Amino acid sequence: MGFTFKQFHVDDFGCGMPVSTDSVLLGSWAPINHAKRVLDIGAGSGLLSLMAAQRNSLAIIDAVELDETAANTCVSNVANSPWAAQIRVHQQSIQQFTEATLATNTAGYDVILCNPPYFLNGPTAASNNRATARHALTLSFTELMQSCAQLLSTDGIACLVLPTVEAHSLIAAAKAVDLPLQLAVAVSSVMGKAPNRQLLLFSQQAAPADCIAEDFAILVQHGQYTDTMRRLTQDFYLKL
């Protein structure tokens, strides 16, 4: 099964979070055209890494995924893509990856991408991998943003997507580690409805000029994609 895009296929079997509109939005929106090093935190099936590789053929991409099953699926998706040489998959926690990377004094990342576990409380999913992917059980917002702050290059950016309610907690966690919010784009599912997700960009520098900064909706009232959504995703979705 999985999901087929214009230039690659993603099998999301065994991943806590399947291919989602949120990840497609983030992977299309994040300004990565000039990045040399990209980090995908909580890579899951590898969708964000594959989108980054398609958009930037020169970037070296590290995909970090804690869950063994998801990491194996990510390895397979990368191997079956045109960009196997660009993407390295690491099956470990971001906390472990951060510690190991800092120990080697490796240069920082130009772009960090993350569609993080976002539920801070409430009932968890029955399966362990889905619960881990959806709830902040093994990775708090504070730990996540601390890793981002430590792993970014001086002028690097961290781009994340979250439901609107949880975004406020993430912004506060980033502020606490001196990684200020530079841009927030509110996205609604249908034009005229209240935004239900936020595309967030954190950096010590101002947001890049090539980043889409206006709020937008995914669909117009009669179910078709808005012009902004088409512009963002036309290189990926088969029917655009």
Score class of each variant (00 low, 15 high):
2 G>W: 02
5 F>L: 07
5 F>K: 00
7 Q>T: 08
7 Q>C: 02
7 Q>D: 08
11 D>W: 01
12 D>Y: 00
14 G>N: 03
15 C>N: 01
23 S>F: 01
25 L>K: 05
27 G>N: 08
27 G>R: 01
28 S>I: 05
28 S>N: 05
35 A>R: 00
37 R>Q: 11
38 V>C: 04
38 V>W: 08
43 A>V: 07
44 G>H: 01
47 L>S: 02
48 L>W: 08
48 L>G: 09
48 L>D: 12
58 L>W: 14
59 A>W: 07
60 I>E: 15
63 A>Q: 11
65 E>R: 06
66 L>G: 07
66 L>D: 06
73 T>Q: 03
74 C>V: 09
74 C>P: 08
76 S>F: 02
81 S>V: 09
81 S>K: 02
82 P>R: 08
83 W>A: 00
84 A>H: 11
85 A>F: 13
85 A>Y: 14
89 V>Q: 04
102 L>E: 12
106 T>Y: 13
108 G>A: 08
112 I>W: 02
115 N>I: 01
115 N>L: 00
116 P>D: 14
117 P>C: 03
117 P>S: 10
118 Y>S: 13
120 L>Y: 06
122 G>L: 00
126 A>E: 14
129 N>E: 06
129 N>M: 06
134 R>D: 05
134 R>N: 02
135 H>D: 08
138 T>F: 12
138 T>D: 11
140 S>Q: 06
142 T>W: 08
143 E>P: 07
149 A>T: 11
149 A>R: 15
153 S>A: 11
154 T>F: 12
155 D>I: 10
156 G>C: 07
157 I>P: 02
158 A>R: 03
166 E>A: 11
166 E>L: 04
169 S>Y: 03
173 A>P: 04
173 A>R: 00
173 A>E: 03
174 A>D: 13
175 K>W: 10
180 P>A: 14
190 V>C: 15
192 G>M: 11
193 K>F: 12
194 A>C: 15
194 A>M: 12
197 R>E: 07
197 R>T: 10
204 Q>S: 12
205 Q>C: 12
211 C>D: 14
214 E>I: 14
216 F>Q: 07
216 F>W: 10
226 T>Y: 05
229 M>L: 12
230 R>M: 11
231 R>L: 13
232 L>C: 10
235 D>L: 03
236 F>P: 02
237 Y>I: 04
240 L>S: 06
